[in-house]
């Protein structure tokens, strides 16, 4: 699975969680998701749960800070998936 594939699936998850939001500005960079799509804390937990289910991984609370923007999220997921 390429980094781009993972990014597309993360964007799909964010769109599912917030169908009314425009996700076109989300890119592989360190701009926080909250700055782009006004993600509240419940939205964030929804995204985390969807990531866990989608990739059948466990994301402990202590790792949440690594999921605040696309770049660190992809780094985190790549590390998780390749170390499975």
């Amino acid at each position: 699975m390429t980094r781009e594939n993972i990014m597309n699936s993360v964007i799909t998850i964010i769109k599912d969680v917030m169908p009314e939001k425009d996700c076109s500005e989300i890119q592989d960079n360190e701009v926080p998701f909250t700055n782009i799509v006004e993600m509240d804390s419940m939205d964030f937990l929804d995204v985390v749960m969807a990531l866990q289910k989608n990739y059948r991984i466990e994301i402990p609370d202590s790792d949440f800070s690594m999921l605040r923007n696309m770049k660190t999220t992809l780094n985190y997921l790549e590390n998780k998936l390749y170390s499975k």
């Binding site: 599912d16 969680v17 169908p19 009314e20 419940m42 929804d46």
Partner: peptide, 8 residues
């Protein structure tokens, strides 16, 4: 309701 509210 927005789609987000309904989903939630």
């Amino acid at each position: 309701q927005t789609k987000k509210e309904r989903r939630r």
